[in-house]
Simulated scan of single mutants.
Amino acid sequence: MSEPEFLTATRAFYDAIATDYTDRFRDAMDSMPTDRAILALFADLVRAERADARTAELGCGPGRVTGHLHRLGLDVCGIDLSPRMVELAREACPGVPFSVGTLFDLPFRDGELTGAVAWYSIIHTPAERLPEVFAEFARVLAPGGYLLLAFQVGDEPLRLDQPFGHPVSLDFRRLRPERVEELAREAGLPVTSRTVREPDGEEKTQQAYVLARKPKA
């Protein structure tokens, strides 16, 4: 079966911009207190659920968030569609496992993870394919496990053309928190909290963070 066009386009886009993207956003977490606080809460919840919890960042890019979770004490790995991004993540976070993969076929056994983070990684999936992605999130999470999602709020996609001067383009799909919550619930992952913050710095839209948990029973 041939690969869907949107996956091929997303891989090509991020392979092309990987080095420039990594250099541009390497220290971005330093100026994002809300992001740090939400990731710290997630790490605390995962550790409280299981002391030897395994966590994965799904769509990890160059490993910025994966590395942060590792420094917070989690046993974490990263998965990304872009081979070049995975190379850069391995360079940035030696000792943390990274591999190439897609959100549609995660390389984990059923119930293997206590924590899963999709940090701005569902935004390139067409709306009609999102239920498949959320079903895969639910499959790999253990009962009691947590899913954390981050995304831009909105209805209209943002198209980036020739970022950093590279001859590539891609749509970034903004989402409504209510729709993301609905997708999580339909996949059997009830939402426990939702945070929306106002744009900061160069951001143009609100940013949303949704935390869901797989029921124990």
Results as ranks from 00 to 15, higher is better:
Ala142Cys: 09
Arg36Ala: 09
Val86Phe: 03
Ser2Arg: 14
Asp15Ile: 08
Arg139Met: 11
Thr34Ile: 12
Thr22Lys: 01
Gly101Leu: 07
Ile17Thr: 10
Arg11His: 10
Val153Cys: 09
Ile17Gln: 02
Glu186Thr: 08
Ala37Met: 10
Arg159Trp: 10
Ser193Asp: 15
His70Phe: 08
Thr192Ala: 09
Arg71Leu: 09
Leu74Gly: 00
Gly67Trp: 02
Val210Asn: 00
Pro107Asp: 05
Gly201Trp: 13
Arg109Pro: 02
Phe6Val: 05
Phe164His: 07
Ala212Cys: 09
Cys93Val: 10
Val210His: 00
Arg36Pro: 02
Thr192Tyr: 08
Ile17Cys: 05
Gly59Pro: 07
Pro157Thr: 04
Glu112Gly: 05
Ala12Tyr: 05
Gly154Pro: 04
Pro94Glu: 10
Met1Asn: 07
Glu182Ser: 11
Pro33Lys: 11
Phe172Asn: 04
Pro143Ile: 05
Pro157Gln: 07
Gly101Arg: 01
Arg71Cys: 03
Ala184Tyr: 01
Asp20Phe: 07
Met1Val: 04
Ile38Cys: 01
Asp105Asn: 10
Arg159His: 14
Pro97Thr: 13
Pro167His: 05
Asp155Glu: 15
Ile38Asn: 01
Glu5His: 09
Pro83Phe: 07
Ala40Glu: 15
Arg50His: 15
Lys214Gly: 03
Arg36Trp: 06
Glu87Gly: 05
Arg24Tyr: 08
Ala89Arg: 02
Tyr209Gln: 03
Gly145Thr: 06
Ala28Lys: 12
Glu203His: 06
Val153Gln: 03
Pro62Asn: 14
Leu81Val: 12
Phe134Gln: 02
Ala150Arg: 03
Gly188Pro: 11
Met85Lys: 03
Phe151His: 04
Val86Ile: 15
His124Val: 11
Glu181Met: 14
Arg109Gln: 14
Arg24Lys: 14
Leu141Phe: 06
His124Arg: 01
Met32Phe: 11
His166Tyr: 11
Phe137Ala: 01
Phe164Ile: 06
Arg213Lys: 15
Ala9Asn: 13
Glu198Asp: 13
Ala48Cys: 08
Glu198His: 10
Glu178Phe: 03
Asp110Arg: 04
Met85Ile: 12
Glu136Arg: 00
Asp105Leu: 00
Asp44Phe: 01
Ser2Gly: 03
Val153His: 02
Phe134Ser: 04
Ala18Cys: 06
Arg129Gln: 12
Leu183Phe: 10
Leu7Phe: 09
Gln162Thr: 11
Ala150Thr: 08
Leu88Glu: 04
Pro177Tyr: 09
Phe151Ile: 04
Val65Arg: 00
Gly95Ala: 11
Glu49Thr: 13
Ala9Tyr: 03
